[in-house]
């Protein structure tokens, strides 16, 4: 770890895009589980996720990035799903 002489002044983080280095997935108590059969590809989950933990490729939703998903449940809350059936459900970790 760096000493006080080698860290930026005032707690500033001088480089952008380094949240990827911090595996916040270990904070998770509940895990979002994607059910592709109910997914309408609206990408609300991708927009609302505060951690960029919803992988999207070529405009299509893919599975979660569990290394960074904190399990806040915002995506599950926002997900409209199909015919009242959510495409994201929260499952307690370890269950």
């Amino acid at each position: 770890m760096k000493g006080w002489r080698d860290i930026p002044m005032g707690g500033v983080i001088p480089d952008a895009g380094n949240a990827v280095q911090y595996n916040t997935g270990s904070w998770r108590a509940f895990r979002p589980v994607w059910k592709p059969e109910n997914c309408i590809q609206c990408l609300f989950c991708w927009i609302y996720c505060p951690d960029g933990a919803v992988n999207v490729k070529d405009g299509k939703r893919e599975d979660f990035d569990y290394l960074h998903c904190k399990g806040c449940g915002i995506c599950a809350n926002e997900c409209p799903g199909k015919k009242g059936q959510k495409a994201i459900v929260m499952v307690e970790e370890g269950k």
Partner: peptide, 11 residues
């Protein structure tokens, strides 16, 4: 840059 991040006992 980011101002005001959380800094825990390690730093």
């Amino acid at each position: 840059v980011t101002y005001g991040p959380l800094v825990l006992p390690d730093y």
